[in-house]
Amino acid sequence: MKKSSQLLPKVIVLFVIAALSINFYLVNKFLIIIWLIALSTGFILHRSGICFSGAFIDIILFRNYTMARALLIIIMVSLLGISAFQSYSLSKGMALPGFVGSLGVSTAMGAFLFGIGMVFAGACGFGTLQRLGEGFSLYMWVLISIIIGSVIGAYHFSWWTRTLPRFSPVYLPDIFGWPWGVLVSLTVLSSLYLFTLFAEKGFVSFQKGLEKWSKKG
């Protein structure tokens, strides 16, 4: 059971990171910020083992809500960040950063197709990248399929949004005003968080009750 320390790959990776950092810094100082955010995101994703498809798999198959709660926290934190960014941009008279999308038939169909792919691959977009980075060679094929699918999707995208019926976009800060729109979203998300706690407890006590009942019988 000897473990290899992988010293040479570590040195090579650190060298490439350093070389790219210097290169990005020389080309454009802004690039190095993006590069550092990307590196730390990758590191955190790998260490935390977070997985979007895993959250749904765990809920449905194993009645485990841990990953779903982690995702809700991610969404809440990023909501606060993007809201601060958006309200700042709007208050300075700049264009709204990001997209305000709308739901439609295409959303449901896209979600369905993506779900099928996710089940076959056992991972979503960044799960694939993360596992490929870990050296899971099977995910090379998944990545190739994602690229093919995305190219076809990008080519067809306007047809889906143009032809199929969809709601008009809803932007909560437009309806409730600035801090309130964000608070409404946060309330909904934290209710979902609480719901997962209750659902987990409820299921466990239901299981225990069932066990007791079957022992009596």
Partner: peptide, 10 residues
């Protein structure tokens, strides 16, 4: 080895 989520746990 080579099985992906959620197959191993199942």
């Amino acid at each position: 080895c080579g099985e992906v989520c959620p197959v191993p746990l199942m």
